[in-house]
Design a protein around this nucleic acid. Structure first.
Length: 740
DNA sequence: ACCACGGCAATTTTT
DNA sequence: TTGCCGTGGT
């Protein structure tokens, strides 16, 4: 083909705004795209790739695009294919982990891994750690398994192997490092690779194999990374190593939406990128296509309270829109009732339920909301929650499957050696563990040795032999079967199905259904929509990729998407989504910002970013609600409005109350039981005894002094001078005033 | 092997 | 308040 000038591919740039165009058509080289919420980030990424292919003449083979979630990777691929109108087999689009996995699978020998290494998830990892602690008789009070796990993952994320960790003679740290070392040894022996290991191992693979590194550097002319603000130290190092001096790198991110610092994400990678990658071109996408300007103004004002930002101000060519509604419930039930009532109104106005989302800071908040939704017969769906492949029954089934592939997988063996119960008690398992440890062999080997030399005989010995025979039998039986048939067989013969069928309650039923669903998933898997399946056949060869898929892609809980449901989720899981109508519930000090994050300025800023993320999810209408009295950990707690509310410009806010109803008069004595039960109270009984000069507190305006008063009962009005807010007249029946 | 009880803590979550 | 964990009883 002849040279293509930009004019010939203008369709690619046609529907883009100037900033997007700049980002898409920038010459190859390093680029940082600061993409605000709703600014068409994915669009730019996808168009950029198309541009690189069509104008810069890069082969899809030379492009690597990295995301954080499988969902994002899928979406990117789909949209790219739609844009180009062709199917792209040999372009690498995937998560950090799936790409690392791919490298390790291809170069398992160079990576010093067994060919059939298995991926373990954090749940398996935790089990492994617990076992380790027990084996070594280490006090799990001083070394809580979670902390140990956190330590190990943390080290890996920083790229540190045990011998590289500086203990400075600290005994506690020393113990941690030793545990890390033991843990790693166990993984090596069982051919197990955890999530952090995938990344670290592939980094080492490239670092220690100059020829491999040269190969991939030559191959990938351009690397693209999405959600760059979420990268951790290891991912940054990985990217830098792979890019080398030659490749062009495009990273897209938003420092204002960095909400995963607590799990190792380093926002500062954005600045580091600008400094360490040569001649970085920075583009800001600030035009927003999602929200009304009222919502964007609120978001801008809120986030301006953070220091050290890269700087970005969202704007829209669209309408001002409705003000942001703030509702102060007198308790959490009242808050929930307000939300559900309002949703009903919105639905009557013509919104679909699925267009409405309720966001909250912590999962515990969902309960009251759910109860209210159920009571009012409003269909809803909770986003998040337990994933399919993380369910107990599924993990058990997968453990059997893993044993078929690899008898030395101790974690799996231990998981199912006595599930369903077959008379192998903790004592027996302990003996096996002891032996495995002292002789440095796997549990499977220890089992055989113990039965062989009579260490375990009688009842226990028989049970152990029976288990070993079961595994061998399953292996033999399933030879030549297709993947889903293998799983059906294993579910049946292992006794898992019966085990759950006999479980009392509806739980067992659900578990049996899940096991059946696993078979369906396997069938779908072999029918090959998943990338991992390309080469594998339908039978046992598909087992390994299927297990990897299960660990890496823990199952999207996006079922029932067709049902028209109100969407409930945490603010974290809302990132990346948008809804016409958004409620943010529990906007209270201590809850949001969460009390665990209020002390350190850095963490508080992350809370604020989380709020920013929440606000920018809303397209047309945003509601912020809070409760003055909330049941927390079984105790009624007085709550104050969140500081974030006060950081929003007042002229964008509108205080709402239920039509014509007084939700609560200002009562001096609040009997918690009474309040929780009463839906509405007529003002008059139990108004606070307020007097001129008295100090009062208002949830939104803070503290002030009563200057003046007029009227009586619920209509009574008082003039209050608030610190920093000026004088205001407030109706006693409406304003939530608390005497101090 | 299984269940019932008491003590205890209690963000956020992807891979 | 819930839910997890370890303990002790059957």
């Amino acid at each position: 083909m002849d040279d293509v000038s930009p004019g010939d591919v203008s369709p690619l740039l046609d529907d883009l705004n100037p900033a997007q165009r700049e980002a898409v058509s920038a010459p190859q080289g390093n680029m940082l795209v600061l993409a605000g919420a709703g600014s068409g980030k994915t669009r730019v990424l996808v168009h950029r790739i198309a541009w690189l292919m069509q104008v810069e003449r890069l082969s899809p083979y030379a492009i690597l695009a990295v995301t954080f979630t499988n969902k994002a990777a899928r979406e990117m691929r789909t949209r790219l294919e739609a844009l180009l109108g062709l199917s792209l087999r040999n372009i690498w689009v995937g998560t950090f982990h799936s790409i690392a996995h791919r490298l390790l699978r291809t170069h398992w020998q160079d990576a010093r891994l067994p060919q059939h290494f298995q991926i373990i998830d954090s749940d398996d990892q935790l089990r492994l750690v617990k076992r380790l602690l027990k084996d070594h008789g280490i006090d799990d009070e001083r070394y809580p398994p979670r902390q140990v796990q956190y330590f190990i993952s943390g080290c890996k994320e920083e790229g540190l192997r045990p011998h590289q960790v500086q203990t400075h003679g600290d005994a506690y740290l020393g113990q941690m490092v030793e545990l890390y070392e033991r843990y790693q040894l166990t993984c090596e022996r069982g051919g197990l690779v955890d999530f952090g290991e995938l990344l670290l191992r592939s980094l080492e693979l490239l670092r220690d194999n100059p020829r491999l590194l040269a190969h991939y550097r030559e191959r990938f002319a351009h690397l693209l990374v999405d959600e760059f603000q979420d990268t951790n130290t290891l991912q940054y190092a990985w990217l830098k190593l792979l890019a080398g001096e030659q490749a062009g790198v495009t990273v897209v991110g938003d420092d204002d939406q960095s909400i995963y610092g607590w799990r190792g994400a380093r926002v500062e990678n954005i600045r580091r990128f600008e400094q360490e990658f040569k001649n970085t071109h920075t583009v800001r996408l600030e035009q927003n296509y999602r929200s009304t300007s009222a919502i964007l103004d609120a978001a801008n004002a809120l986030i301006s309270h953070n220091a050290g930002r890269m700087g970005k101000e969202l704007w829209t060519a669209g309408v001002k829109g409705e003000p942001i509604s703030v509702y102060a419930g007198f308790n959490d039930l009242d808050e929930a009732r307000f939300i559900v009532d309002t949703i009903r109104e919105k639905v009557d106005e013509g919104f679909h339920r699925r267009e409405i989302a309720i966001l909250y800071r912590s999962n515990a908040q969902s309960r009251v909301l759910e109860e209210t939704l159920i009571r009012q017969g409003m269909p809803y769906r909770i986003y998040g929650g337990q994933r399919f492949y993380e369910r107990l029954e599924i993990k058990n089934a997968l453990a059997y499957l893993r044993l078929l592939l690899n008898r030395d997988d101790d974690a799996s063996l231990e998981r199912v050696i006595n599930v369903p119960a077959r008379g192998i008690g903790t004592r027996t398992v302990e003996i096996l563990r002891e032996r495995a440890r002292s002789q440095g062999v796997s549990l499977w080997q220890a089992l055989h040795d113990s039965v062989g030399d009579g260490t375990c005989k009688g009842r226990a010995g028989n049970a152990l032999s029976a288990f070993a025979n079961l595994i061998e039998r399953l292996d033999n039986d399933t030879a030549g079967l297709r993947l889903h048939e293998i799983i059906t067989h294993v579910n049946e013969i292992s006794g898992l199905i019966d085990h759950h069928r006999n479980e009392k309650g509806e739980k067992g039923q659900a578990r049996v259904e899940n096991l059946e669903e696993l078979v369906n998933a396997a069938r779908a898997f072999t029918q090959g929509e998943t990338p991992l399946m390309q080469e594998a056949g339908e039978g046992a060869a598909a087992l390994e990729p299927f297990l990897a898929e299960a660990a890496l892609n823990a199952g999207d809980h996006e079922a029932d998407e067709f049902e028209d449901c109100v969407q409930l989720m945490t603010l974290h899981s809302a990132k990346g989504l948008e809804f016409p109508v958004v409620f943010i519930a529990g906007v209270e000090e201590g809850l949001f910002p969460h009390k665990m994050s209020m002390e350190e300025p850095g963490r508080l800023e992350e809370e604020r970013r989380l709020c920013y993320v929440g606000v920018t999810r809303a397209m047309h209408k945003l509601y912020l609600t809070y409760a003055e009295l909330r049941r927390l950990h079984g105790k009624e707690t007085f709550q104050r409005a969140s500081r974030f509310l006060r950081e929003l410009p007042e002229e964008l806010l509108e205080e709402v109350r239920l039509r014509g109803q007084i939700s609560r008069p200002v009562t001096a004595a609040r009997s918690s039981r009474g309040l929780a039960q009463q839906e509405s109270v007529t003002a008059g009984d139990g108004l606070p005894t307020l007097s001129l000069g008295q100090r009062v507190s208002h949830p939104l305006f803070g503290e002030g002094v009563i200057l003046n008063a007029e009227g009586q009962g619920e209509r009574a009005r008082v003039q209050v001078s608030f610190e920093g807010e000026g004088d205001k007249w407030l109706v006693l029946g409406f304003a939530k005033l608390t005497p101090l």
